[in-house]
Amino acid sequence: MSDNYDVIQVTNVTKSYSLGSGEVEVLHGIDLTVRNGEFVSIMGPSGSGKTTLMNLIGMLDSPTRGSVRINGANISGLSQKELVKLRRKEVGFIFQQFHLIPSLTAYENVALPLVFAGEKNDGAVESAMERVGLSYRMDHKPSELSGGEQQRVAIARAVVMRPKILLADEPTGALDAATGARIISLLKSLAGEMTVIMVTHNRELAGHSDRIIELQDGDVREQGEQQIRINESKMGVIV
């Protein structure tokens, strides 16, 4: 397989949630293709479905209609077990609130995906910590780290399994501007090695990515060098 292939193929994906008596359709038939190693930003107003899309790509959720392919495999056809395996191997998550496990040290938090995957740490934890520049903070608990440091530990945890895809949902949302910028440059340095998809509300930070995808109620804009298509994305209620 060449390096330049489509690692994510979202085809005509619809996602609806049942809500009381009716249904909320959050995504209305989205098409999105991401090349291996790309750094993509997703922007859009609150409630436009950004997190929903991320969850679909991250295999935490499945589409109501349409297909999501990761590395060519349609996730709708996979069993729960296969999904867990694929997710461990292919996807790393970063969240706005870092979501480190408070009882564990930085080192242990980073090692956790290895533990779940049943893999030995053959230096992967150390090199991930080095990668985010926190080798000297291995034994600190999350509560003993600054916000920026916690997010860097979270990034180390997300990349320790060397996944193909790094999903970052508003990774700078809880950080000040300077710290946020550091995180973005860290993500940028990871892009190429892996595909990075980042949700952000900050246009300036989004500017660091290869392209920006805009999700908007009935209005889809795209920027960047590559051609992408988003047919439609809007929120609607069908009662």
Binding site: L112, P113, F116, M161
Partner: peptide, 12 residues
């Protein structure tokens, strides 16, 4: 926490 753990690879 349990949600996070499942997201980062914990099986049922």
């Amino acid at each position: 926490e349990i949600g996070i753990m499942r997201a980062i690879g914990a099986s049922d």
